[in-house]
Design a protein around this nucleic acid. Sequence first.
RNA 1: GGCGGCGUACCCAAGUGGCUAAGGGAGAGGUCUGCAAAACCUUUAUUCGCCGGUUCGAAUCCGGCCGCCGCCUCCA
Length: 488
Amino acid sequence: MRIYNTLTGKKDEFTPIEQGKVRIYVCGVTVYDYCHVGHARSAIVFDVIRRYFKHKGFEVKYIRNFTDIDDKIIKRANEEGIPWHEVAKKYTEEYYQDMDALGVERADVEPRATEYINEMIEMIQGLIDKGYAYVVDGNVYFEVEKFGEYGKLSKRSKDEMLAGARVEVDERKKNPLDFALWKASKEGEPSWPSPWGEGRPGWHIECSVMSMRLLGETFDIHGGGADLIFPHHENEIAQSEAFTGKPFVRYWIHNGFITVSKEKMSKSLGNFFTIREVLKRFDPEVLRVFLLSTHYRSPIEFSYEQLLDAEASVDRFYTTVMRVEQYLKLIKEDGRDTDEEPLAEALEKFPERFEEAMDDDFNTALALGHIFELIKELNRYLDRRPQGIKAKETIEKALSLIKKYSAVLNIFQRTPSEWQISLLRTKGIKLTPEEIEEKIKERQQARARKDWQTADSIREALYEQGIVLEDTRHGTVWRVKVGEEIPV
RNA sequence: GGCGGCGUACCCAAGUGGCUAAGGGAGAGGUCUGCAAAACCUUUAUUCGCCGGUUCGAAUCCGGCCGCCGCCUCCA
């Protein structure tokens, strides 16, 4: 496996610290508001990375934290007039609701910053003792000048950063680049006792403490959004390596941004779409496929048009499954065997191709392409109306193989009817499956007496409401029209 | 200003030295169908922002230019 490592700036062959095991820490969210699509991307990307390691037989220990104390949470609490921990609790629950919907699995351990205050204080004290940190008025700062390798992750020198001159001015710091390990609290702010007075931890220290406590002083993979490279992850490296004297993390993985009109989706620009807002109009699987259709390090331009394309491609899968289900009902096991050569060959090559794609820095877009190639091959085979026990087995094998590998991406795991029922909801179609079936029966009777006019008008009426009928050899099936907005 | 990235068909997107430049969406024609739909077939980039160079050979490497974006401040 080759993984692009931000630290080395290239794809590195992955070798775990301990054979067969991989330890991963991913920066989660600060729970002060609803998550947007950018958060969804990060969560889904690392969810897939974790699933793929498991698929490869690794024993995975996966940690994702919650930042549940910070300035933004305090601000939010003041705005809403509720205690800060209520804010954290509320948005943690909302986070789970969104992530569960998106099929993002819970991490093995999900530590919260406030559960590790004592450990953070210990580490900060350690840094002071070792001469890497200093106290000013109840604040503790990390002294960047003391850590020679500062800048090795974000590839910049201390001088360049100072030349940037956009660093905040804080008189108390010895150097503008120094960052807070501990912040003295103001009157009325949440605080914890410490050797330096009442206060709260700085942001960066929590990830160092929790990751090292849970995974060891050196672990395999640390991930997060590309915007965390500097200063967050740079600072984590500085304080962690200064403290232990050992390398902190072997592989740094960062995902790219979601953009809207080419600009980064962000809270401050106000150009964000929340996950739940998107899920009102699209099935979660559509969002997942959309996000996995682009390599995780590339930017993705977000738009409803693109989601409609993704929706059509997901529909292509479930339509094929529906077709297979219909077909298998009537296949003759004792019929003469049909040559299954092209499909059998595709089935043979598929696992290897899929893994080759994923082994190359988790190329989900290519892996997804291979899945669709196999779907095409399966459809081709069905077009030839194969018969016989062998044909049946080949078809079943194709489907189970697609499902098995799609599970790594956690897509394509439902039944066609589950997908259709979900579409009824996201498209705002008022009809129930029962009502549609009723119409189909009615139309069947008209068709039986060759009353094409009546049959066609029923079909058109349903089409107007977003339902497409398909007359197959094995009966009539319905689907929700996808890929375009339903005119309301 | 410093550092980093991107520019592949109508849209999205994979491909980073050499088989026919994946795959999805959209369009056109065809097969199938009572008609449709789905599926399949054909078709839509002799060409990969532009200009040079290296090479037997480049979308892929090097140089320059143009355009876009990100980080340098909280940020997935």
